[in-house]
């Protein structure tokens, strides 16, 4: 009984701000009372008719899924290769993945701007590519840590050796055995990467700003205006994250069960 009371209380504390924002999105007026005095779809309609909204959603999805795809393609083979074949390198990789978090965001953003401003022959400033490539180093840790935890619990070398004796290539064993076994860590990595990219503001503002406005940049713009419009935007953001995360979890869960 006490368990349920505690769980309900924690859930309420966590969900209450979300409910409050959602209510504010459909409130005619809300001041000095526990609940709004009236409800309206006006703010929702206003935002839906604002062209900046659909552009921001599109930009956020492009950047999030783009960064997710690149981070997956770079991180997953690197984590597997380091664990299975290059244990010495693995120690360095462990330090490397947390490096972006040890550097202040502003420093990293300035570094990325210098890197992609043509000083080294690559010009990406003002394009979504700089944001996309900026998110990838941040996202590697989200794959490395949970996948590495899963890998530590597996006798991967024995699996590879058993596979070799059974006539399978290492790739076949990694694809059919190891990867499905680390699927829980992989799914966590996907969800965390997507959440990071879709909710990130500092890098988005510093690297692309108004030239490629994302949901977070639009939120910043709206924060100086109507609170109701901002609430609609935040609610839309929550919905997008919830839907995308559910889809990712469902797809990954199906693959896991199929494997």
């Amino acid at each position: 009984m006490l368990d349920w009371v505690v769980v309900t209380f924690v859930a309420l504390v966590q969900i209450l701000p979300v409910i409050a924002v959602a209510l504010n999105a459909v409130a005619t007026d809300w001041a000095g009372s526990i609940l709004p005095t009236g409800y309206t779809w006006r703010w929702v309609e206003q935002l839906l008719h604002d062209p900046r909204f659909t552009v921001a959603i599109w930009h956020s999805l492009v950047v999030s899924f783009g960064a997710l795809v690149i981070a997956t393609c770079v991180s997953v083979p690197a984590v597997l290769a380091a664990h299975c074949y290059l244990p010495r390198l693995d120690r360095w990789l462990a330090a490397l993945v947390i490096l972006p978090y040890a550097v202040p965001g502003i420093v990293l953003a300035v570094g990325l701007l210098r890197l992609y401003a043509g000083n080294y022959g690559v010009v990406l400033t003002g394009t979504p590519w700089i944001l996309l490539l900026g998110y990838v180093p941040l996202g590697v840790a989200f794959f490395y840590v949970p996948m590495k935890n899963n890998l530590r619990a597996l006798p991967v070398s024995e699996f590879l050796e058993a596979g070799r004796i059974l006539g399978a290539s290492d790739f076949a064993v990694l694809r059919r055995v190891v990867l499905p076994c680390v699927m829980p860590g992989f799914v966590v990595g996907i969800v965390m990467n997507f959440s990071l990219a879709v909710s990130e503001f500092v890098y988005a503002n510093l690297l692309v700003g108004g030239s490629y406005p994302t949901l977070q940049i639009l939120m910043n713009v709206l924060s100086s205006g109507s609170g109701h419009l901002l609430s609609v935007l935040i609610t839309a953001y929550f919905l997008i994250v919830a839907i995308a995360t559910s889809v990712l979890l469902t797809v990954s869960g199906r693959q896991d069960r199929a494997a």
């Binding site: 006798p155 058993a162 004796i165 399978a168 055995v177």
Partner: peptide, 27 residues
Amino acid sequence: PQRRGIGMVFQHYALFPNLTVAQNLAF
């Protein structure tokens, strides 16, 4: 190893945990 025509039973079995018994045999 795959060209030697050998089979091996490992100390800790090295069974593939995500595959069923039949799938392990079919691998």
